[in-house]
């Protein structure tokens, strides 16, 4: 089992898996999933929602690593938290773009303040963009790692609180795909959705591993230079 899962811990293995899953997911979206009452424009749902869920997941992962840094003082956790949030911000930008396209196709406007998910992502996106401004305006060192970690923790609290706030503030017009009873989707739609979700998560995982690899290499090179000079 361990051998079987080994590629998941490896950037190249993940990248290959992500490519396959994205290809399968795209094919399923266009050839397998039935056309919904919304028409063809509903197809973007299979990309928009998985991308959004991936962004949440990476922000959550970043906050978890932040907690590990503060709590266990584990070296390297700060870098992992940073890379996760970096990926989250990229997926967050993609969520805003795909969401905006969906809004245009469905309601004829690029931006709708009544779209709760979009507004929520705008707030979160602004919040995490500031993460980078904050991080890069502090001298590298333990203090920067601590402050970045605390900020990342605030992020995962802000997400549900903002969600509540937006519910309070706006009318509810976002189409409901999931309810408490379970997915209101046909089996083929649900299968397509799950494949797309898996594709996005593996893609995020691959990018995370890859960036981490690069950043760690950077650090090693700097340490070596330190020894030589």
């Amino acid at each position: 089992m361990k051998k079987l899962l080994a590629p998941l811990d490896n950037a190249v293995g993940l990248a290959v898996l992500a490519t396959v899953l994205i290809a399968v997911g795209t094919a399923m979206t266009f050839f397998y999933a039935p056309v919904d009452v919304d028409g063809l424009n509903q197809k973007i749902f299979y990309f928009h929602v998985p991308i959004a869920l991936t962004a949440y997941a990476t922000f959550g992962w970043g906050a978890w690593k932040a907690l590990v840094h503060l709590w266990k003082k584990k070296p390297g956790a700060d870098l992992e938290s940073y890379v996760a949030i970096h990926q989250g911000t990229i997926f967050g930008a993609l969520t805003l773009i795909t969401g905006s396209i969906w809004a245009k196709l469905r309601w004829g406007h690029w931006w709708l303040w009544g779209e709760k998910e979009l507004v929520l992502f705008l707030i979160i996106f602004l919040f995490y963009c500031t993460y980078f401004m904050l991080r890069y305006s502090i001298e590298a060192g333990p203090r920067r790692a601590n402050i970045s970690a605390v900020y990342a923790l605030f992020g995962v609290i802000l997400i549900p609180i903002s969600f509540l706030a937006i519910r309070l503030a706006t009318n509810y017009i976002h189409p409901v795909a999931f309810t408490k009873q379970g997915p209101q989707m046909a089996g083929s739609q649900f299968a397509t959705f799950m494949v797309c979700l898996a594709a996005m998560w593996t893609l995020a995982g691959a990018l995370y591993r890859l960036e981490l690899l690069g950043k760690r290499l950077d650090l090693k090179i700097r340490e070596l230079r330190e020894l030589v000079l």
Partner: peptide, 13 residues
């Protein structure tokens, strides 16, 4: 920049 995104819920309430 740090405070405004965090204060959106306060403004809503």
């Amino acid at each position: 920049l740090l405070l405004l995104p965090l204060s959106v819920p306060v403004v809503v309430g």
